[in-house]
Write a protein that binds this DNA or RNA. Structure first.
Lengths: 224, 224
DNA sequence: CAAAACTGAACCAATATTGGGCCAATATAG
DNA sequence: CTATATTGGCCCAATATTGGTTCAGTTTTG
């Protein structure tokens, strides 16, 4: 694990405050206690607090404590950033099967060609989780494009932009082994096939299976 | 698997930064640690960092660390404002049936009580399209809350923001006659009933019927 | 084969962190 | 009100960590 420095502590606390873990006028735990909980010397922690104070997030009153002096703006801190992987899978469960149906109805040849190319790209990335993940995201994005519904395209874009940091990243690395990737590839193929055959319900069902697989490997990874 | 070189590492890190895995002012792990995690010599990794520094993505302070000096442009906003009513119905078609299912699974008594109250409110607004529309929007919002999935709640919130746009408002006045409202009320009741009976599929199907009705009255209005 | 790239190790200077002690301001208990 | 505990503020010397640099040996590439 990374050795924590003042800057790191500062960012952790900054995000905690932004997320609402510490709210306005709350008093933070004492510097000594915070130092202990983050496993860091008090001086280091004080350096972190000094950063946040310069940024105007905190106000420190000697002898009393340090207080949160910031109200997270709900419009600039989208909930979307704090979404967890399981919420995300549920959201995709709601959206993507129907996106498949609409893709069958409104998709054009160029969409299907792009999806085909992405399938091939993913099949060549069995041993490269990073490249696979990228193509996978793109696959679902193009699928949304096939609906030609700007609202849905936008929503999927937002969902793909979920970058809920550590948790999600760790999950990804844990879950994307070669055999999982291989399974995903088969499922992507089946979905694309059903769409090209213009069978909306079959495409939707295969998407459901795909997402069920994804959820399973997520929960399995979470048990680790 | 391919041996990784400096350029590859640079690419990986560049994507990681663009994706937001490392955000502005974050400190990267130390060169030694990064070298280890990517399975590469420290010199190679430093070469990669040098590339990214030349590109202006990073700033390195000897003795301290290397820091991200780049904020990905995240301003993909106003598409949602140009959504038309039919796109919107399709999006709701994707989302709301599954929201019903999740509402059955995760909804609590207070959600159902609120929905109950909203039904009553709507039933007393048969002759007041404006009041009805307001409660109707709220009904679907609370339904989303019942999933207790913040991502879905957020998405529905965004969609409701679209519903309040001009074009939609005009449509509303065209479509919302007393007998349509009455029909909606019946359907809302049926949906709520199925959810309370903990029957996810029935609830989802009734929602589909409801949305189908809404789509019909929309297209009829568009023909006028 | 030869050039280029990567490796692994050592060493350096700059900076950060540590752990300790002590102080003054504030809060709390009696 | 007073005694005591807790809080942040500050300083210091020892130590750890970080990026910067060099170089001989190995691997990969063309």
């Amino acid at each position: 694990m990374n050795k924590l420095g003042a800057v790191d502590i500062a960012t952790v606390l900054r995000r905690e405050i932004a997320k609402g873990g510490y709210q306005k006028h709350d008093r933070l735990p004492s510097s000594r206690r915070l130092a202990e909980t983050y496993g860091v010397a008090r001086n280091t922690l004080r350096e972190a607090l000094r950063h946040l104070e310069r940024e105007g997030l905190l106000e420190t009153r000697p002898g009393s404590g340090t207080y949160v002096r910031y109200q997270p703006d709900n419009s600039t801190v989208p909930v979307i950033e704090s979404a967890n992987p399981l919420e995300l899978i549920d959201a995709r469960f709601a959206l993507e099967p129907h996106i498949c149906r609409l893709g069958v109805l409104h998709g054009r040849r160029e969409h299907f060609q792009t999806l085909e190319a992405l399938c091939e790209s993913m099949e060549q990335s069995v041993d490269d989780p990073l490249a696979f993940a990228e193509s996978d995201t793109e696959f679902h994005r193009v699928l949304a494009s096939a609906t030609r519904n700007n609202l849905l395209i936008w929503i999927i874009g937002q969902i793909n932009a979920v970058r809920s940091m550590d948790e999600w990243m760790r999950m990804r690395h844990l879950t994307l082994g070669p055999q999982i990737i291989a399974q995903y590839n088969v499922q992507h193929r089946l979905i694309l096939e059903a769409i090209r055959a213009r069978e909306p319900e079959r495409a939707a069902n295969r998407m459901k299976e795909h997402l069920e697989t994804a959820r399973l490997s997520l929960t399995r990874a979470a048990d680790t």
